[in-house]
Design a protein around this nucleic acid. Structure first.
Lengths: 206, 206
DNA sequence: CTCCTGCCTTGATGTAAATCAAAGTTGATG
DNA sequence: CATCAACTTTGATTTACATCAAGGCAGGAG
């Protein structure tokens, strides 16, 4: 009933609208949830990190496409077995409710980003989110981007060119530095949050 | 422990970040959930209709501003009493999970609207969603808009002028008609969905 | 080593929506 | 019924981002 399975970067895990006979959670790596229009326009609607849940109890088809953004390991449960477990153990559904509400808050926060922020603020917001998970004891803050420029554009509702330009602009403004093009460094997290349009009441990060 | 309370159009029900000592559900009318930046930019992140839930069990402050979009009646529960009830009756938390997941899907669908649709598609999407609740047995479809142009703009991540222009454009293209400026009529729902960029099968949400 | 191929960056140009600016409606109130 | 405020529409102009178009760079295969 419980099993582990791996995917490599770029592999599709589930296609939009397809039957989804399992639920699971991310063990390691990072996956993207996307929703598309017929003409190909695509919007990322979620970024799954370790411990995040995949699938929806009580629904048999996938509402979103799920793709491995990095190499990925998932812990899977057969849907029916999982639903039985939920019915028996109130804790499980309690916990799942809490996780869903957190994701709902995250989705709604992202709606503000998509609807109202400028390109520069969007990019700064994403970089700030990535850096928020960086080890807090080192300065400068350093993090590996789990996404390509293309995936970032899909996440932010922008084009790849705009993402690239804004990253360059933030670099020239000395808000961030890059090492290669998948590692970001930041000396002044408060300044980055300001660029993101957030008040920098950041949780003791600096 | 349970009580009813009314608000009139435009009244604020809860302010962002304020303590929220109750949870509840909409009995009649319509409320908006919004999230704002310090400089005043505002994005609607949800539209609450009858039977929708307000508040979050396990959290004592409001994450969003809630405003009555029309005259509104709420059925309220004291938070602590409600949480007790949840712990005792698995059905309640089961049902709440289902509702949360529906709202999560709705929020994510709306992310695609905000991130990727054009102004015309956004407006058409909103009108299509409003008309989807209209009585299906009459032609033309007719519905009252629960939102002002300003609220629509906040919902769609646009300005009020753009919303107004797109409504005019859809009217001139004979996709919709108006009666006053709060009532929409539509003879060809399929055509409206095409303008919305959807395959003609309402996906969705508000 | 050289040639791909897949990313990423940068520049020039075009355009959808924002902004700025009136003016027209509607509906409430004295 | 006149007035006033709130809401809505329309027009002119600006601008942020998309689109179009090269070119650069790193990693893998021959």
């Amino acid at each position: 009933m419980k099993s582990y399975r791996s995917w490599t970067t770029g592999e599709t895990i589930v296609m939009e609208g397809e039957p989804l006979p399992f639920v699971g959670s991310v063990v390691s790596g990072c996956a993207t949830l996307t929703r598309s229009m017929e003409d190909g326009r695509t919007q990322m609607v979620g970024l799954l990190m370790p411990s995040d849940f995949v699938g929806r109890p009580g629904r048999t088809t996938a509402a979103y496409e799920v793709v491995a953004a990095t190499d990925l390991v998932l812990c899977q449960f057969r849907r029916d077995a999982f639903e039985e477990m939920m019915a028996e153990t109130p804790n499980v559904s309690q916990r799942l409710l809490e996780m869903s509400l957190d994701e709902l808050d995250a989705a709604r926060d992202w709606m503000l980003v998509l609807g109202r922020k400028t390109a520069r603020e969007k990019v700064a917001t994403l970089l700030a989110n990535v850096l928020r998970r960086a080890p807090t004891d080192q300065r400068p803050l350093r993090a590996e981007l789990p996404l390509t420029r293309d995936a970032m554009a899909t996440y932010l509702g922008l084009t790849i060119e705009t993402v690239s330009r804004q990253i360059s602009a933030l670099r020239k403004a000395e808000i961030i530095r890059l090492e290669g093009n998948r590692t970001v460094l930041c000396d002044d997290y408060g300044a980055l949050l300001t660029e993101a349009g957030d008040d920098d009441d950041g949780d003791g990060l600096y």
